[in-house]
Design a binder for these strands. Structure first.
Length: 473
RNA sequence: GUCCCCAUCGUCUAGAGGCCUAGGACAUUACCCUUUCAAGGUAGCGACACGGGUUCGAAUCCCGUUGGGGACGCCA
């Protein structure tokens, strides 16, 4: 049997972290077993489905490289097929028309709730022999009234449901459109899905779906219900928890493989390993190792995982991404050695947006010195050192990090001070603050001309008694 | 309310009856390294929800309690 999994999001809301994790597990399982991964858009709720949400699903999946082998299929384009099956159900007595009004249903529900019972349809139209005409109706599936349904779940084990707990659910609305629980069954069957991997919240739907599958004469697939992902406060993930759409993580400068790495470890583990490449995930993933308990989303750990991937990723690739982030910040960065910048910044940022912010000074001269840093490092004493430095730098032949580093240490030794005494004032002069990548690398990237301009500005700032708030030009 | 699911450090998790004095990771604290910030290294703090069983022995098995989550829609 070749494995076929599917990811079936509904475009009634934007694709978020929870959906991505489900998609990842489906994709991983298919890849791991050389199977097929199908993407299906469940858009039968025409009121709430939006094109924007579909767009996010498609773009998000593309960004994450969770490529589908088949699809996207849209349920709204398969209505003919659903009607056909509903017709067959009606014919075979597996379904019936129900003429109960919404008002009656509502009253019944309230009464049941008041009587501390589980609200469910009472089956009034189930055995109707005469059918009213000119009255709107829905179609309900005739669920077995006795016996049990056993869901043999791949992560939860056997879960038993009593058919008496289930009622006759609506499979066709009064407007003639089919409903979710029914479409899923027909689609999973038609698309020959072998493993249904989805959120825990669908576990309760499963026995009804199995009953419909049986009515169809189909063999139920393997089910694997994944635990939910909760917000950082342990409650259900919602808009309140930031990042509504998965694409926001892209905008924030997260690497797709890092997001996936963080997500794969939420509910699954492989010994003590924390960092996985996509290939490693594919090789190690197994549903048998999936956890049963819900987990809370933790932004700190995501940030750490992202940094780990930032430290491992290809420099040229990162350079291109950094450029995009710089552009998003409105920084005009003509030509520069972006790879060199990435190399000295990758271990100093949690994400590419932060890296861009930290790298701003490479492209924009400091307009104002950070107050604390200027006060501490741009002293008269430092001014003298910077003067010596300026002269020395002017005469450097090979403007490279190792040469510059040697020059700096020699100068400090000659002046009888620690390297910090030279490096910190220089850092403030170049970067505008007390924080930057190693000073030799910073110098090398900035280049001789620009470095000397900034050095001169700092010296003038000191000479002016550090009274002016900003250096010239 | 009814049904279903779940329960190890603050968080993610290892743990398939003796290997557990409960391991790793994030976060946090201290120290080391060091030209700043990081990264890295070392150490510290920190958990088997509770109560009963079963067993020579339980974080691991069973029952109950409590707590959390989900479902109960002409939503998916």
């Amino acid at each position: 049997m070749t494995v076929r999994t599917r990811f079936a999001p509904s475009p009634t809301g934007l694709l978020h972290i929870g959906g991505v994790r489900t998609a990842l597990y489906c994709w991983l399982y298919a890849r791991r077993h050389g199977g097929t991964f199908v993407l299906r858009i469940e858009d039968t709720d025409r009121e709430r489905s939006t094109d924007a949400a579909i767009e996010v699903i498609l773009e998000g999946m593309a960004w994450l490289k969770l490529d589908a082998d088949e699809g996207p299929f849209y349920q709204t384009r398969r209505y003919e097929r659903y009607r056909e099956v509903i017709g067959e159900f009606l014919q075979a007595g597996h379904a019936y028309r129900c003429y109960c009004t919404r008002e009656r249903l509502e009253e019944m529900r309230n009464a049941q709730l008041a009587a501390k019972e589980k609200p469910r349809y009472d089956g009034r139209c189930r055995h109707l022999t005469e059918h009213p005409t000119g009255v709107p109706s829905v179609v309900r599936f005739k669920n077995p009234e006795t016996g049990t349904v056993v869901v043999d779940d791949a992560v939860h084990g056997k879960v038993v449901f009593d058919n008496r707990e289930l009622d006759d659910l609506i499979i066709e609305r009064s407007d003639g459109n089919p409903t979710y629980n029914f479409c899923v069954v027909v689609d999973d069957w038609d698309m020959k899905i072998t493993h249904v991997i989805r959120g825990d919240d669908h576990l309760n739907n499963t026995p009804r779906q199995i009953n419909m599958l049986r009515a169809l004469g189909a063999t139920p697939p393997v089910y694997a219900h994944l635990p939910m992902i909760l917000g950082s406060d342990g409650t259900k993930l919602s808009k309140r928890h930031g990042a509504v759409s998965v694409l926001e993580y892209q905008e924030e400068g997260f690497l797709p493989e890092a997001l996936l790495n963080y997500l794969v470890r939420l509910g699954w583990s492989h010994g003590d390993q924390e960092i996985f490449s996509i290939e490693e995930m594919v090789a190690a993933f197994d549903i048998a190792d999936v956890n049963k308990a819900a987990s809370a989303f933790n932004a700190d750990k995501l940030a750490w995982v992202n940094q780990q991937h930032l430290m491992r990723a290809d420099g040229a690739r990162l350079a291109a991404l950094l450029r995009t982030q710089l552009g998003a910040l409105g920084i005009d960065c003509g030509s520069a050695d972006f790879v060199a910048i990435v190399e000295c910044q990758r271990e100093r940022a949690k994400n590419l947006k932060e890296m861009a912010e930290n790298s701003r000074f490479f492209f924009v001269r400091p307009g104002v010195y950070e107050e604390k840093a200027a006060k501490k490092h741009l002293t008269v004493e430092a001014g003298a050192l910077l003067g010596t430095l300026e002269a020395a730098l002017t005469g450097v032949g090979d403007w490279s990090a190792p040469v510059l580093h040697a020059l700096l240490t020699d100068l400090a030794t000659a002046a009888g001070v620690t390297l910090g005494k030279v490096a910190q004032p220089l850092r403030v002069a170049l970067a505008g603050g007390a924080v930057s990548p190693p000073i030799d690398a910073t110098l090398a990237i900035l280049g001789r001309e620009e470095s000397l301009v900034r050095l001169g500005n700092a010296r003038r700032f000191i000479a002016a008694g550090s009274q002016i708030g900003a250096p010239g030009g």
